[in-house]
């Protein structure tokens, strides 16, 4: 007989921990967009996403949304990540491996400084 475990079973077990996370709904001051098209996936964009989640969580940053987009058309420099902060010019970073992703969170998101060497595009289009 196949055994099926469900996410629901697991969540029931952890209900108490879950309650704590559920409460706080904070406003967002910006977002990080990870390009998840075929070339992004091929270049390791999932590992990048993973690293971003870990870095935001470690630094207790809850006012930045993380979203995914299709291919940004910059295949040669994937994985790419776009940082959009309210009142700032959007910045696209290229070659964002997990290590660079952590750097972007630490510098751009936390300290408000651009990570110059990784920028591939700045501005709306």
């Amino acid at each position: 007989m196949p055994k099926i475990k469900s996410l629901e079973d697991l969540m029931k077990i952890k209900e108490n921990t879950l309650k704590n996370v559920k409460m706080r709904e904070l406003g967002k001051r910006g977002k990080i967009i990870v390009a998840m098209g075929t070339c992004g996936i091929a270049a390791g964009a999932k590992e990048t996403l993973n690293a971003i989640v870990e870095a935001l969580n470690e630094s207790n940053i809850d006012d930045i949304a993380v979203v995914q987009s299709g291919c940004m058309g910059l295949c040669e420099v994937e994985p790419t990540v776009k940082v959009e902060i309210e009142g700032e010019t959007p910045v696209v970073y290229g070659h964002v491996n997990p290590e660079n992703a952590k750097k972007i969170v630490k510098k751009h998101i936390l300290a408000g400084e651009l990570v110059g060497e990784l920028i591939v595009k700045q501005g709306k289009e």
Binding site: E8, L18, R24, V53
Partner: peptide, 17 residues
């Protein structure tokens, strides 16, 4: 259980699950 996955805490928790 989570509502919208709109914070890094929720993302981290979902990922770990």
């Amino acid at each position: 259980y989570f509502g919208e996955i709109d914070s890094s805490k929720k993302m981290k928790m979902l990922k770990d699950l």
